[in-house]
């Protein structure tokens, strides 16, 4: 064990700004990336579903699938 107390741990031998600044930005970016990826997925699913429903009205959606296979 390198540390005698929590305050000593957070102090990092005087290098707290540099060590914790590095880790904070890294984990912040990781979280940001994950949020963006999740958002992109949600947005894509919504948009594609809307796109598909719009097509379905034109008669090229699911309902017409058997028709196509008859041809």
């Amino acid at each position: 064990m390198q540390w005698e107390s929590w305050s000593q741990f957070w102090h990092m031998g005087g290098a707290a700004v540099f060590v914790w600044g590095s880790y904070a930005v890294t984990f912040g970016l990781v979280v940001l990336e994950l949020v963006l990826v999740a958002q992109r997925r949600k947005e894509t699913l919504k948009r594609l579903l809307r796109w598909r429903r719009a097509l379905g009205k034109d008669g090229s959606g699911r309902q017409s699938a058997p028709l196509e296979s008859e041809q």
Partner: peptide, 11 residues
């Protein structure tokens, strides 16, 4: 380097 080297674990 003291404690500051601990940045190495992500750097």
């Amino acid at each position: 380097q003291g404690e500051v080297y601990r940045v190495i674990f992500i750097h």
